[in-house]
Each structure stands twice: as C-alpha cells, then as structure tokens.
Design a protein around this nucleic acid. Structure first.
Lengths: 155, 155, 155, 155
DNA sequence: TTTT
DNA sequence: TTTT
C-alpha cells in the first residue's frame, strides 16, 4: 500500500556541508541540522531542546548546498526518513537514520554562509544574501529535486 | 531560534502495540510503522520500498493505541523526530531515532487484523467497521495530545 | 523570497471527479474533498465539522483520478493553495480558492462508494481497485506530478 | 471519518496585523501573508509567483502577533483551511477561505518592519529582534494554540 | 514485521 | 555542532 513518509524541518546548520564528488558526476552532501524548540517548564523557566538531524542531499541540491550553505545557515527542508541497517563487528543489528532531502529553501539566517555583502540596498527580506548573479530579484529560491535528482543547478 | 521538527507518516503497523504501564499512571506505547513507497524503475518494473519507523506514544494516546490498534492497522501520524544518544559497552557513541507521536488518526484498514467486526464492545474505531448506523456520522476520531500528554481518553 | 505554500489533506470525495479534456492533450480534473474533524464540545457531546475543498488536478493525475476515483473515495493529498481573483458584474473583487494537487494517494476507503469491480467479499482495504496490469503486487501507488505536470500515467 | 486538514506556510506579511479586541477578553488578529515561489520558465527567465493568504489568529496568538509582527515580518505557520459561506445581496452563494492558524514561528525577517533594536539599517535577518523582555534567552519562540485557544501569552 |  |  502506498504510504506517506514526510519530514519538515526548519533550523540551522551546525557545520559547513560535507560534500563528496563521486564518479559519474554524482555528488552527495551531508548536513547537520539543528532544530530547537523552546518552551517554559512548569517552574516557568524557558527551556531549550535541540534535536540534531543528518541530512543527505544529492546532485543538483548537493551542489547548491555546497555553494551557498555553511555553518549557521538557516534552512527550511522537506524530505523523508531513510534508515540504513547493518550488522556491526559484534554482529549486532545497527540502524542509522537520516533525512533524504527532497527540497530546501534558504532562509535569512543572516550572512548565511557568505561573507557576502548584503548586496545592494534592497529593502526587502533579503532572504538570503547569495550573490544571486545579477538578478534584479534577489529571491531566495527553493531547490527541488524530483525524486530524480535533477542534476542541473536551478539558476 | 525556534525551529520546526515535524514528521507526517501514513502506513501500517507491523505488530501489535507494545504498551508499558508505568508508575504514576503513565503509559507508553511503542509501535512499528511501515511506510511503503512504490514506483517503477527504469526497466518499468514496479519496485516497493518499505521504511520502518519506531513510534512512541504517551498516556492518553498510548491507551487509545493499546485499545484500538493492532498489527496491520493503517494510521496517519503527526509527530517529531527524537533521538536518544548514549555510549555502548565499547564506548562508541550510539544513536537511536524514534518518532514521538503528537497526533494520529486511524484509517480504514478495516478490521485490521481485528476480530472486531462492527461488533465488540468498543464504540468507535476502525474507521469503517464501526456500526456506523449508515449515517452522516461515520467518524474515525483523531487522537491529539497537546504536547502535554493529555491523559484522558478522547471518548 | 522563497516561500512555502503546502497543503496536506486526508478525506473523502463528495462526488465523482469532474474531468475536462482540453485541446492539446491537456486534462483537468476537479474534485470536491471533505475533511471532517470530530471533537467533543464542553458538554461532552461529539461534534463533527466538515470542511469542503476544491481540488484541481492536471494531466497525468487528472487521468488517474478520472479512472480510479469516485464519490466516496478516500485520498491523501499534498498540494498548494491557489486562488483566482476577478471582478464580478457589479465590479466587486472576488476571490476563489482551490487546492492545486501535487500528489495524491488512494487510501483504502474500500469500494468507496463504488459498485466497483474487485467486487467479491474481499476482506482488506482494497486500497484501490485498479486493474493493476498484471502485477502480483496491486499496491496503491501515489501519483506525483513534478510541478511539471508529467503527462504520463504512472503505470 | 477523521480527516486531515493541514496547511504549512512560510512567507512575509503584507501589512501590519489587524487586531480586534472583542468582548470577554477575546482577541482576533487578521494577517495577510504572501508566499512567493520562484522558478525559471522554459525560456530560462526567472518568474515569481505570489499567493496571498488570509490568516486568522485568536487570543494568545493574536496578542503575540499584535505585539511582535508587522508588515514585512517573516513567519512559518501551521494551520488549517476554514471557509465561510453565505449568500450575498443577489442571493448568490459566496465563499471566503482563510487559514486558521494553529501555531506560528517568527523567522528572521530582519527588523521586519520594526524600528526595533538591533539598531540601524542593519542588513540582515536578525532572526528576531523582539525586545524579549528580560529573558536571558532571547530565542524566537513558537506560538502554539492547542485547538483550545490558550489565552495566555507564552512568555 | 505491515500493507497491496 | 547551530541559532536566539
């Protein structure tokens, strides 16, 4: 039966992307994403709780991540849960869970990455400050991979 | 910064719920949920891919799960990713990821396993095996826990 | 700035799909989907609240909808909100909101309404009753359109 | 049957919140939210498409919105679709769709409008620039309303 | 280990 | 290890 396996995350990168260029033009990027929830406990003290997620991006998305994301970047992510299972040396069953990213959007996490001048004097969100290559619009695009890992960069 | 950590799953239980009644009226239920995606590979053959998820429910939700869910039940789930980390005997860092369920809805996996033909004593569940009086009301309720683990059964 | 506009619905069709075959091989299907929430009011009475959604599907998805969905079908939908605005005869600004479907999955609303084939006394969800072309597996596939309205049927 | 009716939006406010304080301590805020998607058409030109959403928040959330949001604010929203239907003067059936907000999170839309702190004409997001009233943590909280419209401010 |  |  057809199921649904969907993950939505919004958080910040704990480190620069780790990118591997594989044979055959394949590229994979691994990101560490922190999602922090904050609430008040019964004593009224604000408590923070951070969950760390391992993200995996392929090809076109991996290239965008490599180019524009870095430690501290704030992103919105859609993906799905994928786990690897194997046996370790002791013969124990092991499992590791990661998020296979299907699309992501860079948010304004303030010089997210780049040492890039906030560019022009534009007034609006300045979502991201990527050197958006001479576009009058400095939108922050979303990067979508069909499930087919579109290889082309979106701009 | 406030983040988002949201999981949406729709699938079937691989086994009956495992429920533990703890001291202080706390209850926890663990479920194994399969989400299956199916697609055609480039040769045109249909391929199925199943991901298994460990779900954790508390208190009111755990009680509902205990009472109405069983192996084969089809449910829709919203929750968040939570991982436990620890060191194993060899001193290796270990991590285990599960889904903390925030709400779930029973779908029509119609007497999913159950011998519960329209019948039993329960008033509700099982989407469309309810003695639904052929009526406008054939509801299958959703079980929501605030993040506060409401202890009361929803009906 | 790159935004997010995402809708997730799970409900039942209020009527058979309305399908229009346009020139140039384009097809559009309009569906009426009911999502019902049910809760107890403060008096402890169960209350039902139904919201009706206008769904729009194109091309490949529209064809699948035409072929397999009907009044009563239970589906899971992902899409986005799209509204049309215009001026009516009196010069008033008008707005109509619909859901542009990006993917959907047929759930087991077991001969949902239909006097549909598969007939017999099958015990299970009958997920969908598609004559799934000689596959041993008659899984209920999800229909995904990139945003590109893939024209091909998924099986 | 229990359905799902969920909306996820991430965008910017087109105007300051419109807030009405009603009798009995009830408060309602209406927001106009823009979600922009940007893509390249087949000629390779980047195209922007903006959808405007009418959001409705109640009580605690409305108060937070009144205090911290303004034109330009970037927020992440979870809610559900709700439509009002009525007959107009000509006896035509009319329908208006809005998003009933269940939770929202302020993102860094960088002095989103505000002349708030963080001083001058700083260029970037500044995640939240709310005068977070003497908290050691000045995280950007998420505002959640059970469906019960919690009346209390979250901090 | 589910479901189709 | 992020962010505020």
């Amino acid at each position: 039966m057809a199921g649904v396996n969907k993950v939505i995350l919004l958080g910040n990168l704990g480190a620069d992307p780790e990118v591997k260029h594989l044979e055959g033009d394949k590229v994979v990027a691994n990101l560490r994403l922190a999602t922090t929830e904050s609430y008040k406990d019964r004593s009224g003290n604000r408590v923070e709780n951070t969950e760390w997620h391992d993200l995996e991006l392929w090809d076109g998305q991996a290239r965008v991540a490599e180019q524009y994301l870095k430690k501290g970047s704030q992103i919105y992510v859609e993906g799905k849960i994928k786990s690897d299972t194997w046996q370790d040396d002791q013969g124990n069953n092991r499992k590791r869970t990661k998020i296979r990213v299907q699309s992501f959007t860079m948010l304004g996490s303030r010089n997210s990455g780049a040492d890039n001048a906030q560019g022009g004097g534009q007034s609006m969100p300045a979502q991201n400050s990527n050197p958006n290559t001479g576009m009058s619009s400095n939108t922050s695009p979303a990067y979508d991979s069909g499930d087919n890992d579109a290889d082309d960069l979106p701009f």
